[in-house]
Amino acid sequence: MRSAVVDVRGLRVDLDDRPVLHGVDLQVVEGEVVTLLGANGSGKSTLVRTVVGLVPSVAGEVRLFGTPLRSFHDWWRVGYVPQRTTAAGGVPATVREVVAAGRLARRKLFRPARKADRAAVDHAIELVGLSDQANRSVANLSGGQQQRVLIARAAASEPDLMVLDEPNAGVDKRSQEAFARALRTFVASGRTVLLVLHEMGPLAPLVDRGVVLDGGHVVHDGPLPTPSMTLTGPPDHHDDHREDYGAGLFG
């Protein structure tokens, strides 16, 4: 049996003394792609924010890789993509600089970046297709490209789990496809993804399981109906028709 990467049991979370999650259970096992769906205010964002330790819980338990959140220290194993409209701060920063911040979980204090660190940053930038923009200021990129910068930043620590909070919100189609491809490559190496989505879009074929939240309760947990689309839109001439050799390997 594959081990649980995310294990949430009986989770209750209050925000400003108002209950947002009521006894939520959620398990994500190794290699799985699970998406949280639900209307605005259903608590899906709060759930992932609690899972990564940004929001305290009132009751229940969260375990990451089998370790209770309180004593979890291997944060390089988690790549987090927060819900943001911009990757820019108050001072200019290049794509490479922002992505390199994602590598800090693997770096020691007062030590320069090693070769492996730089290679991981380059690879993460390449993963989201921004290699040619690596030295540009993030503030000058489109919204979708900035979102991809945040995804590359999360990937830079070479994590085993990606947690993404609405990575497709307000993102152009081109970037959504780029993101879908990046995520596919990530999942192909056997790693785990937990993401919050408003709508499935081009990610639908990638998702193993959907968890639907409503009013802070889980109302559905299981496979979702998949539309007949490939990852990047309707089948086209690139999608070669050959036998499915590896069927089930990552399913």
Binding site: H123, E126, L127, R184, T185, V187, A188, S189, G190, P205, T230, L231, P235, D239, D240, H241, R242, E243, D244, Y245, G246, A247, L249, F250, G251
Partner: peptide, 15 residues
């Protein structure tokens, strides 16, 4: 490693 991609198979090669 092989990966299902719609109706064909991709091979994971060097990332």
């Amino acid at each position: 490693p092989t990966v299902e991609h719609g109706d064909h198979t991709d091979y994971l090669h060097d990332g």
